[in-house]
């Protein structure tokens, strides 16, 4: 990111203030970063985890995804305000206190909102594009520099018989 990162506090009052302040400056270029310990970020991280629950993923990839969501939400002041408002609403609804099932149900209710879609769309292309996640899923990623997979297990599946690779030589072809 070429622009400076900013720490923003979320609240309806701040949002209103931001609307007037940021409208004047080149806000479109400011990535949002709500910091590792803010309540807003914690809420967003939890939201993403409930949407895409993987016990074997550590917090770090979810946190990186949340940062990407904040950046995606910061394209225009209007989008930012809408996003911050929705996140605030989620926080205030007691989302953090819900168990996974109840949290899922509460997200289900808002799944058609632009807020939810933004989080979902960004997460799908970010969370699973993370090398730490690849490792957790058993995907080894780039291979050319390592000589491909030809000596690294491209044919190591051993729970099925070796199949024919030639075309069928029998009748009826």
């Amino acid at each position: 990111m070429e622009t400076t990162k900013r720490r923003l506090l979320i609240g309806s009052a701040t949002a209103t203030l931001m609307a007037s302040t940021f409208a004047k400056i080149a806000f479109a270029k400011l990535p949002l970063d709500l910091g590792g310990d803010s309540d807003a970020k914690k809420t967003l991280v939890r939201m993403i985890r409930v949407m895409f629950p993987h016990k074997k993923f550590a917090d770090a990839p979810y946190e990186r995804t949340a940062d990407a969501v904040f950046r995606a939400a910061g394209k225009t002041p209007a989008e930012t305000i809408a996003f911050l408002t929705s996140l605030r609403e989620l926080q205030e609804s007691g989302f953090m206190k819900l168990d996974d099932k109840a949290a899922y149900a509460s997200l289900k209710k808002i799944e058609t909102t632009p807020f939810f879609k933004l989080v979902k769309g960004t997460t799908v292309t970010t969370l699973y594009d993370d090398p730490e996640v690849w490792a957790a899923l058993g995907y080894e990623g780039p291979s050319f520099e390592k000589g491909g997979y030809i000596k690294r297990g491209f044919n190591d599946l051993d729970w099925l018989p070796e199949p024919r690779i030639e075309e069928y030589a029998g009748a009826g072809q």
């Binding site: 799944e111 979902k120 292309t125 969370l127 699973y128 594009d129 996640v133 690849w134 995907y139 990623g141």
Partner: peptide, 18 residues
């Protein structure tokens, strides 16, 4: 790979099944 599978496996889907 996981990056593309996530985007294409069931576009729009989310939740435990996904």
């Amino acid at each position: 790979g996981p990056s593309f599978l996530a985007a294409f496996a069931d576009p729009g889907a989310w939740g435990p099944e996904f």
